[in-house]
Design a protein around this nucleic acid. Structure first.
Lengths: 231, 231
DNA sequence: CAATTGTGTAATGTCGACAATCCATAGGTG
DNA sequence: CACCTATGGATTGTCGACATTACACAATTG
């Protein structure tokens, strides 16, 4: 994944916004990625270059490059001379995705304990989550949850880990979109996070790791059966 | 990364080799990747599409797509409308690469202990390494070393881990090519591996993990100063 | 002289057309 | 009927030409 902000350093009045010159392939890739991550394009759906080119009113070149970007993200696969399609999601891949995420976040926790990063960000996101849970706001809770985990990874101060985690999290987005939402456990999930922060604050590596592992496994086990393919 | 073998299922006499219909972009990508991983194209070297197209006698399209493949591999970076170049390698990136590799291999060891995979492959590669070390054959030793670690990952039976590890190992190849070979420690490095296998055989997770971590860190610390950029 | 404006060049970005390939399916042949 | 062959359609692969952009550097202006 390659998210690069314009990085406006001089805080000028943003009335005259900096012209953004986004290449077509990026625009196309973003739109397609959105469609996949939101579940509008389901696993197995075929992506035909000519059709997409006509729909989006661009030539095939940017479409091809966009699809290749998504291939790098692991969301699309190509079969030469035959077609491209949204990568099918197997139950195994879902399990592997979550187990790798667990390893990443455990690694982050270890590094945070070593480099003594401030945990304020994590606490903030915990508060956001509990607020969202009380307000019964599903979207906000999901957003705060992601922000928490994102912060956890960023605090580890490891660019490669961050990039790998982001890439992995794309698939998690996709998985979540394909699941039947089980909103019952939301406040429970929200409650999982503060103890993690507390363990980190206590410098208790073992407890932090166990809490993170358990939390990830709960997420992975929600309802794997609902993941299907449309061939 | 996308290494896909032809996958010849029927073990026919390979006299008449199966026709390989490799797209140009893949051939180009392979050649460029070779050049980068062997150190012939150093970090910072710029890749000009038109020049490459002329040199290789193909049009720009496959060159562009090949470069994008290498971008996915994390070996090349693009600056829009300006140019593409071999991604510069910072000391930090090198360190991060090795620390992530450590995490991957520790994860693999844990899984191997859980699923009780056979360790015969690992023992075989250990033997190859000691043989190569005795014969003072540097190339063979490096190959056997990679085979050992590759096997370690494969035994973990985790496709996503395997793919991530392969991608990471690309950069390790590059790093090794850029280093001044310090051949003194070769037999020492070779000797690091059998104890790991032994620890796995004993089911001693703690010891296996410590040995793997130590081994990785030794490799990371060889001579980081020799990594330079050519802007 | 300093600052701004113009201009040229080198590189990537985009396009439309054509070629190569695979797959299914129809048709022949023993 | 079973098996091989060819033919057509759909899709990706490749190409050459043109458009767009950014940068450097000269030209202009005060």
């Amino acid at each position: 994944m390659t998210i690069s902000k314009p990085a406006v350093s001089n805080a000028m009045p943003s009335d005259i916004a900096p012209i953004e010159n986004v290449p077509l392939r990026v625009q196309v890739a973003d739109r397609l990625r959105n469609a996949i991550l939101s579940g509008r394009l389901r696993p197995g759906a075929s992506l035909v270059e000519t059709a997409l080119a006509e729909q989006m009113n661009v030539s095939r070149a940017p479409i091809r490059e966009a699809i290749q970007i998504l291939e790098n993200d692991g969301l699309v696969e190509t079969i030469a001379y035959k077609g491209k399609r949204v990568k099918p999601l197997t139950a195994r891949e879902v399990a592997e995705t979550y187990s790798l995420r667990e390893v990443f976040e455990v690694m982050a926790a270890r590094r945070i304990l070593e480099n003594g990063a401030s945990l304020d960000l994590l606490r903030t996101h915990c508060d956001e989550m509990t607020a969202a849970a009380e307000a019964d706001n599903f979207e906000a809770l999901v957003a705060a949850d992601e922000a928490f985990h994102h912060a956890l990874i960023r605090l580890a101060d490891h660019d490669l880990l961050l990039a790998s985690w982001k890439n992995l999290y794309l698939r998690i987005h996709q998985i979540m979109a394909l699941r039947n939402r089980d909103e019952r456990n939301l406040s429970e999930v929200a409650g999982n996070h503060p103890p993690i922060v507390q363990a980190l604050a206590d410098g208790d590596a073992k407890r932090a790791i166990k809490l993170i592992s358990d939390h990830t496994r709960i997420l992975a086990a929600f309802d794997p059966a609902t993941i299907v393919q449309t061939p």
